[in-house]
Write a protein that binds this DNA or RNA. Structure first.
Length: 347
DNA sequence: AAACAGCCCTGAGTGC
DNA sequence: TGCACTCAGGGCTGTT
């Protein structure tokens, strides 16, 4: 299923094509894909048609596309969602739930197809609310956030005019007059987040992620560490796969009580989370082309080098002990019984 | 208040 | 061959 790295691949693949693009038509083929859309403010189709998209933003596994209206098109891929950029007229299979017709000033007309087999994903139009800390609501591309990626160069002094451009695409600031006109001020939608995403914590690759707040939450909580890693209100972007991989890397048992983790162990775990996500991001980042986004979470993550997830019965790459699998939270936990021992007195 | 079980959803895979 | 069953799990809702 798409977790942070896979969703970021989708975001990056869509960024250039949707930024500055006009939404010319909306077709909803399955109303169940609108389960997170509140119709009180207006119908999904009405709130989108005629709007221009100003960027592509991601926090954790949530995506959104700020609109000229001050609202945003919000997308969550759930288990099986895909957002595909297609030439108009392209045949899609029966799993197509929503289609947007868009017109980009320099790239021309496209279809944005929301395909979702299990309908755990959704699209919605939602209000954009200012962030509590005044910082960017999520990641929206190089140059629009300080210190992203964490090891990369800072572009904060260059402002929006100095943002890096994706090769092959025009500067969106040139094609969309008004809101995207070159300026030294960040766009108004930058320090904002959709209402339905506001309760989601920042992800660990977000430079505004507060390590100390996360560690404090671990000390305060009365639960297991994997449950905490999957709790999107504590830390976002982590799903079952990368939770198992991070815990394996940090040699922590998935049921280890969060409060029992030493600060050093918690720091190590968070570092491993970032490493696992960054590695996966680097691998997934090459799987899309400039004009054609074809994201397949399943084939994507299976190509990653997994040490624990899905490795039941195979030898642990570190010690050779056979990887175990246990049922947990309606899903599976994969771990090395030797490397990841449950420690009831300190960790 | 916090923790957690249950629910949604469907194609692929398995066993009989 | 066909049918019933199991599995995959993110995020929301309801219960304790």
């Amino acid at each position: 299923m798409p977790e942070l790295p896979e969703v970021e691949v989708v975001r990056a693949g869509l960024e250039s094509a949707v930024t500055g693009a006009l939404i010319t038509g909306v077709e909803v083929f399955d109303e169940r894909s609108l389960k997170r859309h509140n119709p009180v403010a207006g119908a999904f189709e009405t709130l989108l048609t005629g709007e221009r998209m100003l960027g592509a933003v991601r926090r954790g596994k949530f995506l959104w596309f700020p609109l000229t209206s001050g609202r945003a098109l919000v997308a969550h891929l759930g288990m099986s969602g895909q957002i595909l950029l297609r030439e108009p007229g392209t045949a899609e299979d029966g799993l197509l739930r929503i289609r947007l017709g868009i017109e980009h000033p320099s790239l021309g007309e496209y279809w944005v197809n929301f395909v979702d087999q299990r309908i755990f994903g959704s699209m919605a139009v939602d209000e954009l609310l200012p962030t509590d800390d005044g910082r960017a609501g999520g990641y929206s591309g190089p140059g629009l956030e300080t210190g992203w990626p964490p090891t990369g160069p800072s572009a904060s002094d260059e402002g929006v005019a100095g943002r890096a451009m994706t090769p092959g695409f025009a500067d969106p600031g040139d094609v969309a007059a008004g809101p995207l006109a070159p300026t030294n001020e960040p766009p108004s939608w930058l320090a904002a987040v959709p209402g339905q995403v506001a309760h989601i914590a920042r992800d660990p690759l977000d430079p505004a992620f507060a390590d100390r707040v996360f560690f404090a939450a671990l000390k305060r909580k009365n639960t297991g560490i994997k449950r905490a890693l999957l709790d999107q209100t504590l830390i976002s972007g982590i799903g079952n796969i990368y939770a198992d991989e991070s815990l394996w890397a940090a040699k922590v048992h998935y049921l280890q009580p969060t409060a029992s983790l030493s600060r050093a162990k918690a720091r190590l775990l968070l570092a491993e989370v970032r490493l696992v996500l960054t590695k996966a991001l680097a691998e997934g980042g090459t799987s899309f082309s400039e004009t054609y986004v074809n994201v397949n979470g399943t084939s994507g993550y299976f190509s990653h080098s997994l040490n624990a997830y899905g490795q039941e019965g195979k030898p642990c790459p570190r010690c050779g002990t056979l990887i175990a699998r246990e049922s947990f939270m309606n899903r599976s936990s994969h771990f090395c019984p030797h490397c990841q021992k449950l420690r009831l007195s300190g960790a």
